[in-house]
Design a protein around this nucleic acid. Sequence first.
DNA 1: CTTTGGATCGTCT
DNA 2: GACGATCCAAAGG
Length: 226
Amino acid sequence: VKRGTWRTPGRELLERDSLEVAPWLLNKLLVGPGVAGRIVEVEAYRGEDDPASHAFRGRRPRNETMFGRGGLLYVYFTYGMHFCANVVCGQEGSARAVLLRALVPEEGAELMAQRRPRAHRAVDLCNGPAKLCQAFGIARGADGTDLLGNASPYRLVDDGRSPPPRAAWGPRIGVSSGRELPWRCWVPGDPGVSGAARNRRAGERAEEFGGDPPSRVDGGPQGLLS
DNA sequence: CTTTGGATCGTCT
DNA sequence: GACGATCCAAAGG
């Protein structure tokens, strides 16, 4: 990874719907202090229209960052012990976000391993939404960080590698509502995708969708609540 | 290989 | 009082 070739994406690219931003994020880099990783699996959440989104029941202290401008990092605490990170997108107030589910370490694997002593293989350092936060040291304090700010501790950068020409699509992992929506996408065949995405149930459901992208990106709430 | 249960606490009902 | 956009180790086939 050559820092000289890193570029910060324009804000307008993040001010689009999460279903457009999600596949665009694939193969971009998340950079933190002493660490960097390539994004290989994400999930789109669509704000107040999406029953699985933290924003479904409106604006609250916890999800405040989701309602902010595109390019912010939304960090939330869950299961009493884990943090997960989203890239906020869309227009301010739309509460669109993309959950980062898996990265492939590109820099600082030693530091990541120090933070994740349980990981015995390199691929286990960042192949899960809470794992990658551990590896990057992302916690409460990182919530609201502007990923497009030059001085930010956590940044989103483009090193020139394009997203895959055809992303793979399937159902989101671990949600209880909106299971039928194929809003998770990943780099096809990448060994870095999350463990949960590899289990049989998730695989079978992905088959049902044929790995195709959602047919409608700009549709309204109709169809989402079936 | 797959399945199960424990950890642990903020948020919402 | 229930339940998470999870992870891990242990137990079962």
